[in-house]
Design a protein around this nucleic acid. Structure first.
Lengths: 211, 211
DNA sequence: CCTACCGATCGGTAGG
DNA sequence: CCTACCGATCGGTAGG
């Protein structure tokens, strides 16, 4: 018997999912600290204490959201990475577009929260989720490019790992126009293709290569 | 008469600076929301309500901290950018090292806070500070590279502006080992040179260029 | 699954 | 520049 059953058992599992989904959207948009359990409750149509029936505490809810999100990302990224009919640069462009459009992930915020707002065990799991579900699929593409001889394995410290981090931080950190928050520092969403081009060819002037 | 003078006037200006300096370190490390006025007070050796004598509210204190920080960055970056005896790549490497070592800035967190925790007028000023003091000096270096013919002006969307954003987000977002927060996803501090190399030359395999 | 409520802490103010 | 304190809100619990 994993949990004592609720007094009113309408559709427990569905309610849990509703809380998770509302929490996911809020946490991704605003971050751990800015989102209160009352905001999650209102967005999912339940009373606030009910969250504590389904989840041990706010951090456990956040962790569960990140498990969900990591699974979504991993599936999408591995699916893109597996398309052998497309070139490595093509697949990297799809990855970049996916990360920029599908969700509003902010790697910088994620890392900051992982290191400042989480307990040690949670932090360790979040770090693993990030590595396995997001870093690994992208890094695998750069490594495939190296194996095929198209990319250099380690030109002055530029490894698949570093390139992965650069792609990720670039694509998920630029301020995007939208939600009336426009500033003159915004960067167009289409820039994700350019990010990939920069990582592969750099800015140096020279005759164009072909892929 | 700008402000009514305090009852006990020991060294008002020095106290103000002490508050600012403590706030700066705390805000840069932990972000706006995570830092309380009581933490700032304790770190600067004053009682908490005194902060409200020197600053209108927490957001005004944060803004003042960012003005200070932007001025520091601007001076350092413009000094590096002006070294005509060094090549553009050399100066970019110094810029990257500076941003990674000197402070623990997190661009992703900064942008997130600007858009979520600040009032419109504060947000506008923070956006301007960021553009003038940090973006502009770096972008100027890439533009100098373009003018000299060393870099391409806009190869498939890779502009000086995009390169600047990539450098900034890469260098200030990677998880760095330190403070007992080590995870297996950390990236060595020395990676800043590699970031610059990637942005200029990319990962594509080819005979080495010279600068 | 809800009502009622708690202790703690927050940003900020009164009043001197 | 401090003591004292406020209203609001937070994460979380009691008890059914």
């Amino acid at each position: 018997m994993p949990r004592r059953p609720p007094t009113v058992r309408t559709d427990t599992e569905e309610t849990r999912r509703a809380i998770l989904q509302a929490a996911r959207q809020l946490f991704m948009e605003q971050g751990f600290r800015a989102v209160t359990t009352r905001m999650v409750a209102e967005a999912s149509g339940v009373k606030q204490p009910l969250i504590y029936y389904h989840f041990a505490d706010k951090e456990a809810l956040y962790l569960e959201v990140q498990r969900d999100y990591a699974a979504t990302c991993r599936a999408a990224l591995e699916r893109i990475a597996a398309r052998q009919s497309e070139s490595v640069p093509e697949r990297l462009r799809h990855v970049a577009r996916y990360l920029r459009q599908a969700h509003q992930m902010n790697v910088g915020l994620y890392i900051h929260e992982m290191r400042h707002d989480m307990q040690a065990t949670t932090r360790a799991e979040l770090s693993d989720l990030f590595r396995v579900s997001i870093l690994a699929p992208i890094m695998g593409l750069f490594e495939e490019g190296v194996r095929s001889g198209f990319l250099a394995a380690d030109a002055r410290g530029v490894t698949p790992r570093l390139a992965t981090y650069m792609l990720l931080s670039a694509v998920t950190n630029f301020p995007t126009p939208g939600q009336g928050n426009e500033t003159s520092n915004d960067i167009a969403p289409e820039a994700s293709d350019a990010v990939v081009h920069a990582l592969i060819y750099g800015m140096v002037a020279r005759p164009p290569f072909t892929e």
